[in-house]
């Protein structure tokens, strides 16, 4: 079938991208800083023998090309090496602990941004008022440049400190426990039917998801609005009308056309999402990969930083694959090319 072949071809095309990003990260974090151990320890007054021992332990004494290949092979097997700072701690287990929190935040943020962004664009696109359209465009360009920590802290002040209706950090209140299944608390609580825990988890994720979602929603608004306008003026709409199709049905069909560029954009949006997640997590003490990365930056823990960033590279590849598939599902022309 067309679709299966398309997915396989796309998947193969992603591989060089991931390899390239891996190489780039390797150069930036292994080659640029000189000796990462010295940088991590922040001192040059360390006995040569001890330094050699640490280098050997972390596999940093081997030639660079060997490190380059070994790291990738191990990484693909799920072995991300050991922390340089917390000695003996496998990075992979840190990451599996932290990843669900980031994933949960990302999912909710994307939902918020999609509903908010596409919703506002859709309403403005259907509106006949040029003022509404103007305001929607302005919304799009201004939310896009909001500084995530500033917005997040502002929401914390308003909803956490003054109105006291929502918590300002962490994923759950003290005393609430959810048995991890997926590690994403809102979903786990739902699966287990624990309403109290679910409400608590939702309360904790509202502000972070809103912060990140609001910032990501702007481009969706503009894309949806621009394309609604473009398609509504196209011949397809006249053709539909000439057949007596009712306006609601036409708008529904047209909306599908406007989704094509929106979905294409979704892929790029995820890059923004991951960057934004780092800031959102730091702002809300959200214990995900972002706060992990920032913690490790404080200690210059190069092996851990490298692992997180390469994880991000893989995520980017995976997401662009998912976007391609979504794109093909919406637009049949892509599948059969």
């Amino acid at each position: 079938m067309g679709l299966a072949r398309y997915v396989i071809v796309r998947a193969l095309l992603i591989i060089p991208t991931i390899l390239l990003l891996y190489t780039l990260v390797f150069i930036v974090l292994r080659v640029l800083p000189g000796n990462p151990v010295l940088a991590a320890l922040g001192t040059k007054n360390i006995p040569e023998e001890q330094l050699q021992a640490i280098m050997r332990e972390l596999g940093l004494d081997k030639p660079l090309y060997q490190q380059y290949i070994e790291y990738l092979v191990n990484f693909l097997r799920g072995d991300m090496g050991y922390s340089m700072v917390v000695r003996g701690r496998p990075i992979a287990s840190d990451i599996t602990d932290r990843f669900p929190a980031t994933l949960e935040l990302s999912i909710w943020a994307i939902i918020v941004s999609f509903v908010l962004g596409v919703g506002i664009g859709y309403v403005a696109g259907r509106s006949r008022s040029s003022i509404v359209k103007h305001l929607a465009r302005l919304y799009g360009s201004i939310t896009y440049v909001l500084f995530i920590p500033a917005l997040g802290l502002f929401l914390q002040l308003v909803f956490g400190l003054w109105l006291k209706v929502l918590p300002t950090g962490d994923r759950l209140s003290p005393g609430i426990y959810i048995k991890p299944i997926t590690g994403m608390y809102t979903f786990d609580a739902l699966i287990q039917g624990d309403l109290v825990a679910f409400i608590d988890a939702v309360k904790h994720i509202i502000l972070p998801a809103l912060t990140l979602g609001l910032v990501l929603s702007g481009p969706f608004t503009r894309l949806t609005l621009d394309n609604m306008e473009k398609v509504m003026e196209s011949k397809i709409v006249i053709a539909y009308r000439s057949r007596g199709i009712r306006e609601e049905a036409i708008t529904r069909h047209v909306f599908r056309h406007t989704l094509i560029p929106v979905v294409t954009y979704l892929g790029l949006q995820f890059a923004l999402l991951l960057g934004g997640a780092v800031l959102t997590e730091t702002t809300f003490n959200w214990p995900g990969l972002g706060t992990y990365l920032v913690d490790k930056i404080m200690y210059r823990d190069y092996t851990a930083i490298q692992a997180v960033i390469i994880i991000f590279a893989f995520l980017v590849g995976l997401i662009s694959l998912i976007t391609d598939v979504l794109y093909a599902l919406i637009d049949p022309r892509v599948r059969y090319q």
């Binding site: 397809i236 053709a239 000439s242 599908r256 056309h257 919406i330």
Partner: peptide, 13 residues
């Protein structure tokens, strides 16, 4: 009505 350009009058999706 039959419109001029058949490429734009049928919904490609």
């Amino acid at each position: 009505m039959v419109l001029q350009d058949p490429f734009t009058t049928l919904d490609p999706l």
